[in-house]
């Protein structure tokens, strides 16, 4: 068995990215949409850490970047969930299809 290399990790992160994008575009539940966004962010984190570890181990740019991404993802999720709760109060639903008062 060959050791785990950069290619394996990049394959994982790309797969996660596209699973996230697919989920974002097809799911109809707002909380699931948020989860898809988290998937994409995690794929980015894996990318940064892997590149840092395998290609540029002399400085820690990638690691720091992924720490910041985790922090900001939390802030984003907090605001998004607040908005979703408010939407649930006015629409009695968290389905994207039910939020249809704005359309042309």
């Amino acid at each position: 068995m060959s050791p785990v290399g950069l290619n394996h990790i990049l394959f994982l992160s790309s797969a996660l990215f596209f699973i996230g994008v697919y989920g974002f575009l097809t799911r109809r539940n707002l909380v699931t949409l948020l989860m898809s966004i988290e998937l994409i962010l995690n794929s980015v984190n894996i990318n940064f850490v892997a590149f840092n570890k395998y290609l540029y181990p002399e400085n820690l740019d990638g690691l720091f970047f992924s720490i910041f991404i985790i922090a900001i993802a939390a802030a984003e999720a907090a605001v998004a969930i607040a908005i979703i709760i408010n939407l649930y109060r006015s629409h009695q639903s968290i389905d994207v299809e039910d939020a249809d008062s704005l359309r042309y």
């Binding site: 990215f17 996230g20 974002f24 707002l30 949409l33 948020l34 966004i37 994409i40 962010l41 794929s43 980015v44 990318n47 940064f48 590149f51 740019d61 990638g62 970047f65 991404i69 984003e76 605001v79 998004a80 908005i83 979703i84 408010n86 939407l87 006015s90 629409h91 939020a99 008062s101 704005l102």
Partner: peptide, 29 residues
């Protein structure tokens, strides 16, 4: 009602767009 919907669309599209941007940044890094 419309304001809540607008906010939902705003946060989702801005989060999604910054995710895609970040993926690009990670590749270029």
């Amino acid at each position: 009602k419309a304001s809540g919907e607008a906010a939902m669309k705003m946060i989702l599209s801005s989060a999604f767009s910054s995710c895609i941007l970040l993926f690009g940044i990670s590749l270029i890094y």
